[in-house]
C-alpha cells in the first residue's frame, strides 16, 4: 500500500462509464506519474474525452476507481476532485466569456500547499499574449488565446496533475508549437499530464508514454519510442 502523502500521481483502475444505457469506456486502467506526459490516442469517439470526464467526475463511474497521490477520489464530487490537485482543461475550453481575463484567472485560483504558487504575473510570463489582454472580456480573445487562458485558469488552482483534452484542436500550427513549449515547461516543473490528442506531431513533441483507446477499451500501452517502431499498432488503431 502507498501512503496517502506519497506524490505518486494519478492512478486509474478499471474504470467504466457511459451515457444512458451504453458504456462509452470499459475497464480502463492507467497511471500517470509526476513529471510524466501520457498521451491518450485513438479515433474521435473512441472514448478519450469520456475517460478524462470520468476521471474528473463529470460522468458517473459504473465501476472502478480513481486515486490521486494515493487518495481515492472516485467517490467525490467534481469540485472535491479538483481540490485534490487534478486540473482539467476541456476540449472546448469553456472559458467564462463574460468575465475578463484577470477574472477568469481569479475564478480558477486556489491556494497552493507549498510556497511556489502560480500567480497571474507568472502566468502572464508563461503566456505573453494574455498580458496585454488582462482587462478584456474573454469573449474577445482569439481561439489560440482562449486555449492559453483555459490552461492558465486551471494552473491558477495549482494542480499537480493536468487533464488536457485536445489542446491543439482548431489552432493554427504555429500556435500549436508555442503550446508544446508550454507543456514541456510544465512537465519539467513536475506536473503529471494526461493528454488526449489527435495531432500526432504535437503528441510526439511532448509525450513520454502512449495509450491507445479503441471502442472504449484500452488496446495498447507503451513508450512513445516503442509506439513509433510498432507499425502494426499504428496502422491498426491510428490509421497513419
Amino acid at each position: 500500500m502507498t501512503s496517502p502523502q506519497a506524490a505518486n500521481g494519478l492512478t486509474i483502475e478499471n474504470i467504466s462509464a457511459g451515457y444512458g444505457q451504453a458504456l462509452a469506456i470499459r475497464d480502463i486502467s492507467l497511471t500517470v506519474a509526476p513529471g510524466q506526459v501520457v498521451a491518450l490516442l485513438g479515433r474521435n469517439g473512441a472514448g478519450k474525452s469520456t475517460t478524462l470526464k470520468a476521471v474528473m467526475g463529470m460522468l458517473h463511474l459504473r465501476s472502478g476507481s480513481v486515486s490521486m497521490d494515493g487518495v481515492t477520489v472516485s467517490n467525490r464530487p467534481v469540485h472535491a476532485r479538483a481540490r485534490t490537485g487534478i486540473g482539467y482543461v476541456p476540449e472546448d475550453r469553456r472559458i467564462f466569456t463574460g468575465l475578463t481575463v484577470s477574472e477568469n484567472l481569479e475564478a480558477g485560483r486556489r491556494p497552493a500547499d507549498g510556497t511556489d504558487a502560480w500567480t497571474p504575473k507568472k502566468l502572464f510570463d508563461l503566456f505573453p499574449n494574455l498580458a496585454p489582454a488582462r482587462d478584456r472580456h474573454a469573449a474577445q480573445l482569439s481561439g489560440g488565446e482562449q486555449q492559453m487562458l483555459a490552461l492558465a485558469r486551471t494552473l491558477m488552482g495549482n494542480p499537480r496533475m493536468l487533464l488536457l483534452d485536445e489542446p491543439s484542436e482548431g489552432l493554427a500550427p504555429v500556435i500549436v508549437d508555442a503550446l508544446a513549449q508550454v507543456v514541456k515547461t510544465l512537465k519539467q516543473e513536475g506536473l503529471g499530464i494526461l493528454l488526449c490528442e489527435q495531432n500526432t506531431v504535437f503528441t510526439a513533441k511532448v509525450a513520454d508514454r502512449a495509450a491507445i483507446i479503441e471502442s472504449g477499451s484500452l488496446q495498447y500501452e507503451g513508450s512513445m519510442s516503442e509506439l513509433a517502431l510498432d507499425d502494426a499498432v499504428r496502422k491498426r488503431y491510428l490509421a497513419v
Binding site: 463529470m58 479538483a82 481540490r83 467564462f96 466569456t97 468575465l99 475564478a107 485558469r153 486551471t154
Partner: peptide, 10 residues
C-alpha cells in the same frame, strides 16, 4: 456562465 466548469476548477 458554466456551472460544471466552475466545479472543475474546485
Amino acid at each position: 456562465e458554466d456551472r460544471e466548469m466552475a466545479a472543475a476548477l474546485g
